[in-house]
Design a protein around this nucleic acid. Structure first.
Length: 279
DNA sequence: ATGACGGCTATCAGCCGA
């Protein structure tokens, strides 16, 4: 299985680019974030013409997540158990959920397409929401893997945290001032690793960014952030055979500000069309 | 060249993003 995650920054604004990429790169499963539309506005036909099934979760023009897959998407779930909500004027429990998580079972893999809240500012209520979101993700992961330690589980998407100093090449993002690089956010991200997930791309691609701001020539200067990840359980991680960051997708006309992160996973030996040769 | 932000809508202004 070839799995990719991509914060597309509006599916309607660049559906041609996105479907072309998926076809050209032979992507089997494409997890998208920031589709910025409701399901009824999603350009399903373009994906179906290319041989993909799509499940989309969107409530308005903000956020929105989707998964496209060549194989059928089973047991689709919107939002993960314990996921917090957010709305100005609301506190904690009574806030409505946003469209930041969608999941499906594909070829036996439990895939989550996730768009972690931005945080907006270190003192903003959105920042506390971001930390609550991470803590709920950690809890979901821990309880899921406790019940099924061998589950191939993949949490993929825009985590909005640059976990290491080397993941931040944007001079406007400064520790102590900015979101994405604070100790609290980094600890919240690393807690997912303690819960049984690992970044399956990092060992294969130690450096490189996945996002560059549209402003200030950030891409030509290569002043980006590494904030898009594929986190996998042991069973998933053990099956990862390759990875790439599709930097070319930041070029040309009308790019997203994020690029796809791709992993090759070899989980289904029964799908091999070449017989095993023993001896 | 990878070139100075770009989506969205309650649209021509303001919000959001990282």
């Amino acid at each position: 299985m070839r799995l990719a995650t991509w914060n597309v920054n509006s599916i309607r604004a660049r559906v041609d680019r996105i479907v072309s990429f998926a076809e050209r790169e032979h992507i089997d499963v494409l997890a998208m974030q920031e589709i910025k539309c409701k399901p009824e506005q999603f350009p399903y036909a373009r994906f179906e013409e290319a041989g993909y099934h799509v499940e989309a979760h969107g409530l308005d023009q903000w956020n929105g997540v989707a998964i496209a897959s060549r194989e059928p998407l089973e047991d689709v779930q919107y939002s993960f158990p314990g996921m917090p909500g957010f709305k100005k004027g609301h506190t904690g429990d009574d806030a409505p959920l946003e469209a930041r998580a969608i999941s499906a079972l594909v070829d036996g893999v439990r895939v989550w397409s996730l768009y972690v809240p931005n945080g907006r500012g270190l003192d903003d209520p959105h920042f506390a929401y971001k930390l609550r979101f991470f803590e709920a993700l950690r809890g979901y992961t821990a309880s899921t893997l406790a019940g099924d330690p061998d589950l191939p589980l993949a949490l993929v998407g825009d985590f909005n945290v640059a976990p290491f100093d080397s993941d931040n090449g944007d001079p406007s993002i400064v520790e102590g001032v900015s979101t994405h690089v604070s100790p609290a956010e980094r600890a919240a991200f690393h807690a997912l690793e303690e819960a049984g997930l690992q970044d399956v791309v990092r060992p294969l691609i130690p450096t490189g960014y996945t996002y560059w701001d549209y402003k200030q020539l950030r891409f030509p200067r290569d002043e980006g952030l590494r904030i898009d990840f594929v986190l996998g359980s042991r069973a998933f991680a053990d099956a990862v055979a390759g990875a790439s960051i599709a930097r070319e997708e930041r070029k040309g006309d009308g790019p997203s500000d994020h690029v796809p992160v791709v992993v090759d996973v070899d989980l289904s030996p029964e799908d091999d069309d070449v017989p095993m040769i023993f001896g």
